[in-house]
């Protein structure tokens, strides 16, 4: 599988990774090489094989829906680069006036 430059840029965009020119070139080569390696799995006919969902865990794990204390918000915010009034401060997501 040959991965093109535009595919690398598209995947980087999906993954929210800003890449340098050198990184993009290197990833074109690396991704192509590694995807070619994993394609050996296509030698196997897996039509009737069930995919592994969990190796050991049996069934769903449920707990009582009871409230319990969580971490204080100041502890949670202690690692945040920017906070305001007890919230994480981030860039505006909506424009003024809607849309």
């Amino acid at each position: 599988m040959k991965i093109s430059r535009s595919e690398v840029e598209h995947i980087a965009d999906l993954a929210r990774l800003e890449l340098s020119e050198g990184e993009i070139k290197q990833l074109e080569t690396d991704l192509s090489q590694i995807l070619e390696y994993v394609e050996q799995l296509n030698e196997l006919d897996t039509t009737d094989v069930l995919p592994t969902a969990h190796v050991v865990v049996k069934g769903d794990v449920l707990r009582e829906d009871e409230s319990r204390p969580s971490l204080p918000s100041e502890d949670i915010l202690s690692n945040a680069p920017r906070t305001q009034d007890g919230f994480f401060r981030v860039h505006a997501i909506f424009r003024k006036g809607g849309r």
Binding site: L27, L41, N42
Partner: peptide, 30 residues
């Protein structure tokens, strides 16, 4: 880490999930 995020994102991206991640989970069963 970037290389693996890129490969993982590719393997999970629309149109490739069955060919890569699902295929791998089937071979994992074998």
């Amino acid at each position: 880490v970037k290389r693996r995020i890129m490969l993982g994102t590719y393997a999970l991206s629309s149109g490739y999930y069955d060919a890569y991640y699902l295929k791998a989970q089937k071979v994992r069963t074998l």
